[in-house]
């Protein structure tokens, strides 16, 4: 038994990362960042607004939260749709009650299918990010490059037309990418994306079409990850959010750099009657902490960007 010799060769074994996408850097050694009004913790709530097609292809995998039953899987189709019809309006009320600003990552196909919802968000003045075309249009290694190029352009351009917003941010469905997704995003005028969660602060990311910035939209605290992947209780999600906020705020106060708490949530999960109260408790806790700045993703990005040069 012997492996090919490449298994004992290490061509990337050198200083820094094993790729050219971004530089190695310790968060603790970076130039300090501050938020407006001497706030120490930026609170970035991102709501995923998603369309899960009934005729899911599952290429190259069935997306988490997608159809799991033989066609036609009415139960998962309709349960996800519930979020866009019912759950989201509970979320919006909860944000307003706690003076919290949220960003909304739309699958562009949902923006086409639910103009009322799109207008509602746009009229509130809340930021809209592009979340790809739909939850079954994945970006993945090995996909046809022309198909992906068309997919990114259609998703971004159409969402700009429909929303009237610049749409500067991107979140890939299932945070999955191909080798060229960052290039395509940069080519389509996207400024920041949320797929590479390597940090608690934004960091610069190289593409062949100019720079992007990776925004730290935590996966570990996401409602889907905690409740559906880890099977934790709602009470535990609340504790984890509060513990994270306390920790990051203390770290920001004891060090010299502000921090970001990013919560990615979904109306088909947190908008359920038995969960909305948990979200309300989390928002009430966060909004009463001393030193929290509730902001859109773009506002946090702009504020960080200005302090980099």
């Amino acid at each position: 038994m012997t492996l090919d010799k490449e298994h004992l060769e290490y061509p990337q074994r050198h200083y820094g990362m094993d790729h050219e996408r971004y530089d190695w850097s310790l968060l603790s050694e970076r130039k300090p960042v501050s938020w407006p009004g001497e706030k120490k913790l930026a609170l970035w709530i991102n709501v995923g607004l998603q369309f899960f097609p009934l005729n899911q292809k599952g290429e190259p995998f069935a997306v988490p939260g997608g159809m799991t039953m033989p066609y036609p899987d009415f139960r998962h189709y309709s349960l996800r749709d519930y979020g866009n019809r019912v759950g989201i309006y509970r979320l919006l009320k909860a944000f307003d009650q706690n003076n919290i600003r949220a960003s909304f990552a739309f699958n562009t196909e949902l923006a086409e299918r639910a103009p009322y919802l799109l207008d509602k968000i746009a009229t509130r003045g809340d930021e809209i990010l592009c979340h790809g075309w739909n939850m079954d249009s994945l970006h993945y290694g090995g996909m046809d490059q022309r198909d992906e190029s068309e997919l990114v352009e259609r998703s971004v351009t159409r969402l700009r037309e429909l929303s009237g917003q610049a749409v500067r941010g991107w979140l890939s469905p299932a945070r999955n990418e191909s080798e060229q997704t960052p290039e395509l995003l940069a080519a389509n005028g996207v400024e920041y994306f949320c797929d590479w969660v390597n940090d608690d602060m934004p960091f610069e990311f190289r593409t062949d079409n100019g720079p992007l910035v990776a925004m730290p939209l935590s996966n570990e605290l996401e409602d889907r990850f905690v409740l559906m992947n880890n099977f934790h209780s709602e009470q535990s999600w609340l504790e984890q959010v509060c513990d994270a906020a306390d920790f990051l705020l203390a770290e920001a106060k004891s060090g010299n750099s502000a921090r970001i708490l990013a919560l990615n949530i979904h109306p088909w999960l947190m908008g359920q009657p038995h969960r909305i109260g948990t979200l309300e408790k989390a928002l009430a806790y966060l909004s009463h902490l001393d030193g929290v700045w509730s902001a859109h993703a773009g506002e946090i990005y702009d504020c960080w960007r200005k302090q980099q040069d």
Partner: peptide, 15 residues
């Protein structure tokens, strides 16, 4: 688990 690039698993370990 995913074809290259496995953004999710790589990112959290780099974190």
């Amino acid at each position: 688990p995913q074809p290259y690039p496995a953004t999710q698993g790589y990112s959290i370990r780099d974190y």
